[in-house]
Computed example of a mutant assay.
Amino acid sequence: MTRYLISFDDGAMVVPDGEWGAVGAAAHAVVAEAKRAGVFVTGGGVVQGATVVGVDGAVVEVPLPEAKAVVGGFVIVDVGSLEEAQRWAAKWAVACRCAQEVRALMDDPEM
């Protein structure tokens, strides 16, 4: 099995007012399905704004808006193939009403 990161950029979800509840319910339904299938590892929305901790330990606040694309939300699944991860990503794309990126996570036995 391989773990895959399924994610979307902040700002990718364009949902009309009054429809956020339906989007949340649809996304949670896919999470429940993934849990029942035994492939869900973790996931969630990402709060925007960040701190950067340098190699010297210094902490720097990153001003908003950030100058680069940032993750708006993610899910990690543990599945047997890229194609299976893409099938799950398609379900989240429909639920969240935005395209999803799929990336394999490197396997590190020490982790």
Rank of each mutant, 00 (worst) to 15 (best):
G44T: 10
P65S: 10
G11V: 11
V46K: 04
A50V: 00
R3P: 01
M13K: 05
R36V: 06
Q86V: 08
A89L: 11
F74L: 14
A12F: 01
A93W: 00
K68I: 12
V14H: 10
G57C: 02
L64S: 06
V94Q: 14
A50Q: 00
D56H: 13
V41I: 13
V52L: 13
A34R: 04
G72I: 04
A29D: 15
K68T: 14
G38I: 08
V70M: 09
V75F: 12
V62Q: 08
V39R: 00
A69S: 11
D78F: 02
L64G: 02
D17H: 00
A50M: 01
W20V: 07
A22K: 10
F40L: 14
E101T: 14
V47H: 14
A50N: 02
R103T: 11
V47L: 04
M111T: 14
M106D: 13
V39M: 02
W20R: 12
V79A: 09
A95F: 00
G45T: 08
F74C: 11
V71E: 11
V55A: 15
A85G: 08
S81H: 05
A25K: 11
V47I: 03
E83I: 04
R103L: 12
L5W: 15
T2D: 13
G54H: 02
V23W: 01
W92Y: 14
V75E: 10
P65D: 12
C98I: 02
K91M: 01
A27N: 11
E66W: 01
V79K: 11
V62G: 14
R87L: 05
C98L: 00
T42Q: 13
P16G: 10
V77F: 07
F40D: 05
G38M: 04
Q48R: 14
A50D: 01
L105N: 05
G44D: 13
D17L: 03
V62S: 07
V30H: 06
M13P: 04
L105T: 14
A104F: 04
K35A: 05
L5S: 14
V62R: 01
W92E: 07
V30W: 07
C98R: 01
A34L: 14
V79Q: 10
S81A: 09
A95M: 04
H28F: 09
A90N: 08
S7W: 09
G57P: 07
H28E: 12
V30I: 13
A69L: 07
M111Y: 09
G80V: 08
D107C: 03
V70N: 09
V55P: 07
D108L: 11
A89S: 13
G44A: 12
Q48F: 01
Q48V: 05
V71P: 06
Q48W: 05
V71D: 07
P63R: 12
D10I: 05
Q48C: 05
P16L: 03
T42K: 12
V23S: 05
C96L: 15
